[in-house]
């Protein structure tokens, strides 16, 4: 089903950062969110994931899988235990395909504490494959990935699209997906109210 967002407004720390954001995401499509630091990409994604409320607007969508800045990886569990936990939570039985897709098979029995930053990131991205969700919300998914891993992730993403999935991605780099549609959030920057200082005292 299409994800339709109408006239969204989001706030961070009591201050409205984006307003009037509307888009439609159809299955098999990637929408890349662009914009300078602080524009509100993360805030928008968190709100779409249901972690914080919208100030205004409406979203119609299926359940979404969210991958934020933090990896959500337990250092004392092995790679397979970490992934197996999320698979069980989401009611997905199969983790081997996800391990293979992100080249984690040889690391499967290693504790996450002993992984490099890029390997942890790959584990965090593998979690998307066991989420069982069709819409992925990705916040800077390629942080600390090397060029080969970015390409690997591009392939995973393409596979997800082929299966009828879709993704909303906040990123600054080129993911190597020519079909990706881009939206610059700069025009949606909220107009700062002049009584901001007053508001802040009660925020």
């Amino acid at each position: 089903m299409d994800m339709v967002a109408t006239n969204l407004a989001v706030a961070r720390g009591g201050q409205r950062v984006l307003e009037g954001v509307s888009f439609r995401l159809t299955p098999g499509e990637v929408l890349v969110l662009r914009g300078a630091n602080g524009i509100g990409k993360t805030t928008l994604l968190r709100a779409l994931a249901g972690l914080q409320p919208f100030e205004a607007g409406k979203v119609v969508a299926d359940d979404m899988a969210y991958a934020g800045h933090a990896n959500g990886v337990k250092a004392m569990l092995t790679v397979r235990e970490n992934l197996g936990f999320w698979a069980a939570v989401n009611g997905v039985a199969e983790v081997e395909a996800a391990l293979t897709a992100l080249d984690l098979v040889t690391l499967r029995d290693r504790r996450a504490a002993d992984l490099s930053a890029g390997q942890k990131r790959r584990l965090a991205l593998a979690r998307l494959l066991v989420s069982g969700r069709m819409v992925w919300l990705l916040d800077e998914p390629t942080v600390s990935l090397d060029a080969a891993s970015v390409a690997l992730f591009g392939a995973v993403l393409r596979g997800h699209l082929v299966r009828g999935g879709s993704a909303l991605i906040a990123t600054h780099i080129d993911l190597g997906l020519p079909e990706a549609r881009e939206t610059d959030l700069t025009p949606y920057r909220a107009v700062q109210r002049l009584d901001g200082a007053f508001d802040e005292a009660f925020a």
Partner: peptide
């Protein structure tokens, strides 16, 4: 909370 699992649990189907 620190490692981000709590956010993920909040978006999980539990």
């Amino acid at each position: 909370f620190e490692d981000g699992s709590l956010e993920l649990l909040a978006t999980a189907p539990i």
